[in-house]
Design a protein around this nucleic acid. Sequence first.
DNA 1: CTATTTATAGGCCATGTGGTCTAAATCTTT
DNA 2: AAAGATTTAGACCACATGGCCTATAAATAG
Lengths: 236, 236
Amino acid sequence: MRRGIEFKKKARIIIVDDNYEHLSGIKELIEIESDFDVVATATSASVAISLIKKYRPEIVLMDINMPEKDGLTAIAEIEKLELGVRIIALTGYDDPDLIFRAMKIGAKGYILKTMASAQLIYAIDEVAAGKIYLPATLSSRFFEYFQRSFKEETEEVEDEENLLNYLTQREEEVLDLLTQGITYKGVAKKLFISETTVKTHVNNIFQKLQVNDRTQAVLYALNNGFLNKRKVKIAI
Amino acid sequence: MRRGIEFKKKARIIIVDDNYEHLSGIKELIEIESDFDVVATATSASVAISLIKKYRPEIVLMDINMPEKDGLTAIAEIEKLELGVRIIALTGYDDPDLIFRAMKIGAKGYILKTMASAQLIYAIDEVAAGKIYLPATLSSRFFEYFQRSFKEETEEVEDEENLLNYLTQREEEVLDLLTQGITYKGVAKKLFISETTVKTHVNNIFQKLQVNDRTQAVLYALNNGFLNKRKVKIAI
DNA sequence: CTATTTATAGGCCATGTGGTCTAAATCTTT
DNA sequence: AAAGATTTAGACCACATGGCCTATAAATAG
């Protein structure tokens, strides 16, 4: 929109792809069809990382199907450097899990090799402008995967019998302190009750949770959303 | 594309909005501009839920800024019913947190009231076709929020000194068994070593983790990505 | 080839933990 | 008002746990 008025800095790009044919193909495409500046290319992730440190490009196009060090690991490593490099993942597969993982570790875009070249340029444009770019088809997949993984997560917790529901208020308080690694004495002091009372509560908790020591009780509590209960209430 | 050839079932829609003006506006818009069937409308979430149970619509347009029972809670409840209803969240705010939460609990679309009516129809079209629809601007926000929350999550774990790194392999094995709530005896059996050896390891673990009982050790391990280490290695 | 680390194991003792039983005061529910 | 659940508390006992110490074989590092 404001093109032509604002100063247009050519974004510098590094392309990484173990397939040399494809690499030079993309390079040419970008040089001809766009006004980005391809400052370097690499056919392996390790070389790419040193090049990135050297050239500090704005954008990295990263093939994530490479032998030895794979692209995802490379992306994670680059992100860790915190150089402000914006990485676009490039691959032949529209596997939702792959997309999800790439976005999770910080990729700012994800495009398929089969996509039209115009879309590649557009993606770079968007990412260079600070946005995140996923083609509509992929973002749909991403969302499905996202929702599915989230549903499983909450289902696991709410599923069937959650023995935590049988605990009384006081027992929950005691368990809460147990999950902080506090002893009988400590709990007694905090709740202003005697140590034996705490023991009684703890024994009742064990029976209700069907465990026989505090570690198992704490693990049960943690695995069954004891701490999450509050979090979920606030978060959703 | 295959329009006209395939049998076109009119998707049934229920619209929920506490603002009556707006509600009827959308209703008219849909009835005139699309061929969806608005089977009912509601101005409160609780009424909406009973209507949904009765009419079993394919699509629900849900305003998420409503008094009393808010839209997000309503969406969560409807999703829990597992009626296969596809919900589109409708609101005036493009708050990324709100978008994220809506998608998290299962909304299949999210559109702003300020958006053009054509976009609303398009969104319904997409969602009715089984896809998930987020306008480009919102999906960008969503992704940013997604990445940010994920980054924080991993940073918390990798941050600074992780005392777990000082543990030897054997100590990690022992701790692993402790995080499963196993006693000295059990650990000894599993590792084919004597009970006193286990105690020695455990004591060393305590010192390294700067704790003084197993519960605290387990909690430290869990909070500092002990179990995640493997997961992360496999997952990323 | 020594020095260090790691894994192994034992003893001793204080204290924490868990099992079981009883029981009273208080609060809910019917 | 009676029945039931919850919270409180005690006694008793077996055993698990944790602190502290020493010590040896094996592996690793310098």
